[in-house]
């Protein structure tokens, strides 16, 4: 994933939820790295663990969830911090969260406080992390609102979240996230709740911000079209693990894992003209409570072999920079 020292490196991360029904292995051994100024796309369906992974990187795992294994290394100029070992309510993580790593969510209404003005919420975020005066913070907030393409930023500053449309709220969220010039922006399905024309505006905005602020982005989505338009590198998650990882062109043109191929076959595309029948992936995602045996995708896989049901394939390189967790792509299993 590029030669540069990674900004963030996640190693063998496991996040388990201890519930009355048993242990849900939401994230079950995940490795990835994001280099500065790169965008990593994380794709998967609901329950694959992509959001929990993101929350772990933000240090936002709460009971009954727990990081049971692994490291989340954030590289700073002189030192490396392991976020997974920090107290989620401690001073150190609060210095990182919002400041070095910021996050935007799918539904901006749940992350904006409905009883405070948009502008004041951004000012608060700035004052929390920067030692500047209120007046200066206010000016910066207005500039940020303008930078994310909100018309009449001074008027919008005085408005409450409910007075903004969905697209405008998402822009305000992005303005708040960018307020401290984070090195990593985590975007969890930021365009999923938006209409396509508004989604196109927000994707355009995020691509522009990435250029202007040199921010690395971890972009989480279930939409392969959005991934194709946003990501430099892609990881595909299934049942708490990464099943394939590669640069964006490679993964779209030469997908290796049957799950990745299945996903690509299941979406109708505007670029298709033939009356192609969609190749649906049969069955349903198994319960995360179930004990894993062999490859997690084997029960739904059209190519499953004997070995797939008993042994875990693990993620291994199939080409330079391209890894897949599948026995089909091994020389001699």
């Amino acid at each position: 994933m590029g030669a540069a020292e990674p900004l963030i490196e996640v190693k063998d991360l496991k996040v388990h939820f201890h519930t009355e029904d048993g242990v849900a292995r939401a994230v079950d051994g995940v490795d990835f790295a994001i280099a500065p100024e790169r965008t990593l796309g994380v794709v998967g369906e609901s329950g694959c663990g992509k959001s929990v992974t993101a929350r772990a990187v933000m240090g936002l795992i709460d009971a009954p969830g727990r990081i049971v294994q692994g490291e989340i290394l954030l590289r700073r100029q002189s030192q490396v911090v392991d976020i997974s070992k920090l107290d989620p309510r401690g001073r150190e993580i609060r210095g990182i969260r919002g400041n070095e790593i910021a996050m935007i969510f799918q539904e901006p209404m749940t992350s904006l406080n409905p009883v405070f003005k948009i502008g004041d919420q951004i000012v608060e975020a700035i004052l929390l992390h920067d030692r500047i005066g209120r007046r200066e913070a206010r000016e910066r907030a207005v500039d940020l609102l303008a930078a994310v393409g909100i018309p009449l930023p001074r008027q919008r500053f005085e408005q409450f979240p409910h007075q903004l449309s969905g697209g405008m709220r998402q822009r305000a969220m992005i303005a708040m996230a960018m307020s401290c010039n984070p090195r990593l922006l985590i975007a969890d399905e930021p365009t999923t709740a938006l209409d396509v024309t508004i989604q196109a505006q927000v994707m355009d905005l995020m691509n522009a911000l990435r250029r202007d602020f040199n921010t690395a982005i971890m972009f989480i989505t279930h939409d392969l079209g959005v991934i194709a338009g946003m990501a430099d590198d892609v990881v595909v998650m299934y049942l708490g693990r990464i099943v394939e990882s590669a640069p964006v062109r490679e993964i779209f043109h030469h997908p290796k894992h049957p799950y990745t191929r299945g996903l690509m076959g299941s979406i109708p595309s505007l670029a298709d003209w033939g009356a192609r029948r969609l190749t649906a992936i049969e069955g349903v995602v198994p319960s995360p409570f179930a004990e894993r045996q062999g490859c997690g995708f084997a029960p739904r896989c059209p190519h499953a072999m004997e070995i797939c049901r008993t042994r875990d394939p693990g993620l291994e390189d199939v080409a330079p920079g391209h890894a897949a967790a599948c026995f089909l792509h091994r020389a001699a299993p």
């Binding site: 989604q199 079209g225 959005v226 991934i227 779209f252 979406i267």
Partner: peptide, 8 residues
């Protein structure tokens, strides 16, 4: 033109 297409 706004629809994202799954092909980089």
């Amino acid at each position: 033109s706004a629809v994202p297409v799954a092909d980089p």
